[in-house]
Computed example of a mutant assay.
Amino acid sequence: MAKKNVNDNVIAQNRKARFNYNIIDTYEAGIALTGTEIKSVRAGQITISDGFVTVHNKTALLTNVHISTYAQGNQFNVDPLRTRQLLLHKREIVALEKAVQESGITIVPLKVYMKHGFAKVLIGIGQGKKKYDKREDIKRRDQERELGRRLKH
């Protein structure tokens, strides 16, 4: 049986994260969700572009991620922007906590996907890029695109 690729089940992606940050390390974490939230996530009703991760009292928290309310959820719906707990091992949380203490380091969600029926988030430890770094990335991407066009024709 062929092994499924994680990219097949991607629900949401934060494309600006890799542009705005140099991603140093990545971790896969589960998200503690309610019943109506997981139904909204499976329907693709999640936005992670403004999200970030904080470590507080030995727990990792996913903040500012919008999961729309489930249409048939009625009284069981919760606040779309509530802070959600990330499910990580203690050693991973300690590593994240140490990384955040450095200047200019932040933890951002890179993508949300389904794995074995569970919602997972890929989080990355990122160091903010300067404006000239972003310009170099744009220049390199344009050069690669132009080279691809020339090789195609």
Rank of each mutant, 00 (worst) to 15 (best):
V65M: 09
L151Q: 10
G124Q: 03
E92F: 03
K98R: 13
I123T: 06
Q85Y: 08
Y132R: 14
A29R: 02
A95T: 03
R84C: 02
I24G: 08
Q72F: 15
H66G: 00
L147F: 15
N74T: 11
T69E: 15
D142W: 11
F52K: 12
L122Y: 00
S103M: 14
V55Y: 01
N5M: 13
I11R: 04
N5Q: 11
I125F: 07
G126K: 00
Q75R: 15
K134T: 03
G117R: 03
S68P: 09
G124K: 02
G35L: 06
D50L: 11
G124C: 06
V78C: 08
Y113A: 05
T26W: 14
F19C: 04
K130C: 08
H153K: 14
K58E: 13
R82P: 00
Y70I: 06
Y70T: 01
G124V: 00
Y113M: 09
K130R: 15
D8K: 04
N14C: 01
A71P: 07
A95S: 14
F52W: 14
G73D: 07
L122H: 01
K16H: 10
A29Q: 07
V55T: 06
L33Q: 06
V65G: 00
A29E: 01
P109E: 05
I46T: 03
L110F: 11
V94M: 09
E28M: 03
T106V: 10
R18K: 10
D133K: 13
N14A: 08
I31A: 02
G73M: 06
E97C: 11
G104H: 07
R149H: 15
K130P: 00
V108D: 03
V6Y: 12
D133V: 08
L151P: 05
Q45N: 12
A2G: 06
I125P: 05
P80G: 02
Q45F: 00
V108K: 01
I48H: 03
F52R: 13
L86I: 04
L61A: 01
V121I: 10
A12H: 05
R15A: 10
A99H: 04
T69W: 02
I67F: 11
E136F: 07
F52H: 12
V10N: 03
N9W: 10
G128L: 14
E92D: 13
Q101D: 14
T54Q: 12
K139R: 12
L33R: 07
A29H: 01
T36K: 02
T47I: 12
E146S: 09
I67S: 05
N5Y: 09
K4R: 13
K16E: 12
I105D: 06
Q13P: 00
V6R: 13
A95N: 11
A60H: 02
K129M: 13
K130V: 09
G126S: 02
G44C: 06
E28C: 04
L147Y: 15
D133E: 15
H153R: 15
L87Y: 05
K39F: 03
N77M: 06
N20K: 01
V41N: 04
G30L: 04
D25V: 11
E146D: 15
